[in-house]
Design a protein around this nucleic acid. Structure first.
Length: 644
RNA sequence: GCCGAUGUAGCUCAGUGGUAGAGCACUUCCUUGGUAAGGAAGAGGUCACGGGUUCAAGUCCCGUCAUUGGCUCCA
């Protein structure tokens, strides 16, 4: 008999050789039907694999991320089985689960596949799934594995086998399909109830562009049809929220071929929105002890040679600007940090001056690869809400706490409720690749962890994800429909202070090197606005909306009254436009609703006589009439509630 | 940068070798209106750009540029 410890701490006795599925059955049939895989002593196993010694066990279902991954990994095998049936001779690369579903890289030889073939393949997958074929794990020797794939003629699997050690190789078989695979897999194909192939794309074998390009087929599966329906609904919703579409519809920004790709043009309404974000953050930063600076858009090559960026990125950047002087070169500013270092150096510093917090809404230019450009989220010219904090090592923690507070305040004002702080630390196995002393790194890493803890952040720690110049903390935010975005970032830097030989005089009258902290709560205004648009589906918080209200006169007889009201509202700092078009009220309301203007104020004879407005709220409808003062109060109240 | 798809009016799109279209937006006129589209007329195009095939090209072919789905990248 062996002892199995369940997550609740209870211990049960089973015969050696029992499987997770057997154990699930012994608890309840319903649980057994939902089990996809199992965590055995912390390692994910097939639910059908025999357990032969005492173990801790967690049954994994669709509600566990690892359970989902198991289903999707098995679905990739099911896709492969279907492809083999539809396209005999197809060769297979790799087929892993991903964040949403799975893919399989395949070589279809002379065949081409397009989304038109998807229905046929999906149907085949569903038909194969219904057969309830078990996923059977088989340990094989390397020689057997090589023999199998040599006979099958699958050079990609043979390539994979080269890197595997004998004794660790397993095959998985379901139905007629056998694959080289570490596993684990679900018990049988019948657990896959809903299948959807999403798209097809090219992908290089092993991600190397020198290798052959394979066809990557993306799909997703679910244990219930209703889950697939919900997933597709969210995808539709995401399309409706696409910031590129809304940016055009709401007249926020545009692009022009003549101006150049990746160079956004901010339209008046988008600019109004952006300026408001800037003002908001500027005020908050001033209150937190930042000072604003301004630096030019170009800088001498020597600056970037000193910072090291010239060596690293010079060849892949916008190329130098030449001057009439022989050999003189300037570069477009790709980041603000070196400039701020020079500002730091403009005068000597005492330990008493620190921290020095230099902030700049600095526009930078980076020559991103053309294929990377995407709406406002990836552009070639953008403005960072940048600041560099120069401080003593013993101040790092306190500064982190303050920046975290700043970021959290922004998240609150913009209604981002679901976020995780990702702390990226050194790879402890490979400390040599990082610059800076061991002591400083330890201190900084500890400071970040403590700061996050102090503010009660939900954190994940990633070892080896730190930049070579310092550890960092990034905020990963989930938007209103569950998608993840990386927004605010805080990074420690030991590199630039070294390269620029930054110093301060300590209490000991000795020269010391300050620590530099880069931080950008928005990241960049472009990217942040994009995420904000998608988060709120273009319905901005009232304080940010480019137009907060629009006056809708019933006929042109009341245009003058409408203009008068809009003036009065301006005195209350309320942004109100007037729709003076010769259109009926119904039409004006419809257009205002479509432009997502928060408040519509219908005015006609009644309102003019009583000095009131008839208020309609976007998405909610008629609120009845009220005095102009009451309406102003309503707006001010709604705005202040966003900040408390 | 690489592979695939796409590019027609300001916007959304139809047009598959034979005279360039629709809806919305815009302009003018009629209408003077009450909570999601009043009516009529008008204007608007080098069919991304450049080459080619053809009696004839928005349509077929090649190249370039841009957009886009991926890959790779992101100081």
């Amino acid at each position: 008999m062996i002892q199995i410890t369940l997550p609740d701490g209870s211990v049960r006795q089973y015969e050696s050789g029992v499987t997770a599925l057997d154990i699930a059955k012994s608890i309840s049939e319903g649980l057994a039907r939902n089990v996809l895989s199992a965590e055995v002593n912390g390692e994910v196993w097939d639910a059908t694999r025999a357990i032969t010694s005492d173990a801790s066990l967690k049954l994994l279902t669709w509600n566990d991320d690892e359970g989902k991954r198991t289903l999707w990994h098995s679905s990739a095998h099911l896709l492969a089985e279907a492809l083999e049936a539809e396209f005999p001779g197809v060769k297979f690369g790799i087929g892993p689960p991903i964040e949403n579903g799975f893919y399989y890289d395949v070589d279809l030889g002379s065949h081409t596949i397009s989304s038109d073939d998807f229905t046929r393949i999906e149907n085949r997958m569903k038909e194969l799934a219904k057969r309830k074929s078990a996923y059977i794990r088989k340990e094989v020797t390397k020689a057997e594995a090589v023999a199998y794939f040599t006979e099958k003629g699958d050079e990609y699997k043979l390539d994979l086998l080269k890197d595997l050690e004998d004794g660790t190789i397993t095959f998985y078989q379901q139905g007629d399909f056998t694959d080289l695979c570490r596993g684990p897999h679900i018990p049988d194909t019948e657990r896959i109830k809903a299948v959807k192939l999403m798209n097809v794309a090219g992908a290089y074998w092993k991600g190397d562009e020198k290798n052959k390009q394979l066809t990557r087929i993306y799909g997703i599966t679910f244990p219930k049809q209703s889950e697939l329906d919900e997933y597709l609904r969210i995808l539709e919703e995401a399309k409706k929220r696409d910031h590129r579409k809304l940016g055009k519809e709401l007249e926020l920004f545009t692009f022009s071929d003549k101006v150049g790709q990746g160079l956004p043009l901010w339209l008046p309404k988008g600019t109004a929105l952006r300026e408001r974000l800037v003002d908001y953050l500027k005020k908050a930063q001033t209150a937190s002890g930042y000072v604003q600076v301004i630096t030019p858009h170009i800088a001498h090559k020597d600056l970037y040679v000193c910072s090291g960026h010239y060596e690293k990125y010079g060849a892949d950047s916008f190329q130098p600007i030449k001057t009439p002087a022989e050999g003189e070169e300037f570069f477009l500013k790709p980041m603000n940090c070196p400039h701020h270092c020079e500002i730091y150096k403009a005068k000597p510093h005492s330990y008493k001056d620190l921290p020095l917090r230099l902030a700049e809404f600095g526009t930078v230019y980076r020559y991103e690869q053309s294929g990377e450009l995407h709406g406002l989220t990836r552009v070639r010219g953008f403005t960072q809400d940048d600041a560099h904090i120069f401080c003593r090592a013993d101040q790092v923690k306190e500064e982190f706490v303050k920046v975290i507070d700043l970021v959290l305040m922004i998240f609150k004002a913009l209604d981002f409720k679901d976020y995780v702080a990702q702390i990226s630390l050194r790879d402890p196995e490979n400390k040599a690749k990082y610059i800076g002393s061991d002591e400083n790194w330890n201190k900084a890493e500890q400071s970040i962890i403590e700061a996050a803890e102090e503010r009660g952040l939900n954190t994940v720690v990633e070892l080896g994800e730190a930049a070579f110049y310092g550890p960092k903390l990034d905020f990963m935010v989930r938007d209103a429909i569950g998608r993840k975005w990386q927004l605010g970032t805080i990074q420690v830097d030991y590199n630039l202070p070294e390269r620029f030989e930054l110093e301060y005089t300590g209490a000991d009258n000795q020269k010391h090197r300050p620590v530099m902290i880069h931080r950008a709560p928005f990241g960049s205004l472009e990217r942040f606005v994009a995420v904000l648009i998608e988060h709120c589906a273009g319905i901005f918080p009232l304080w940010l909306a480019p137009e907060q209200a629009i006056l809708l006169p019933i006929s042109d007889k009341y245009n003058d009254y409408a203009k008068k009201v809009s003036q009065i509202l301006k005195n209350y700092d309320i942004r109100a436009a007037v729709d003076e078009r010769d259109e009926r009220a119904g039409k004006k309301i419809r257009d205002a609703e479509l432009s997502k203007i928060p408040f519509m104020l219908v005015v006609g004879e009644k309102e003019e006589q009583s000095g009131s407005v008839s208020v309609r709220k976007h998405g909610e409808g008629d609120l009845g009439s009220m005095s102009i003062e009451d309406f102003a109060g309503l707006i001010q109240q709604e705005i202040s509630s966003a900040f408390n």
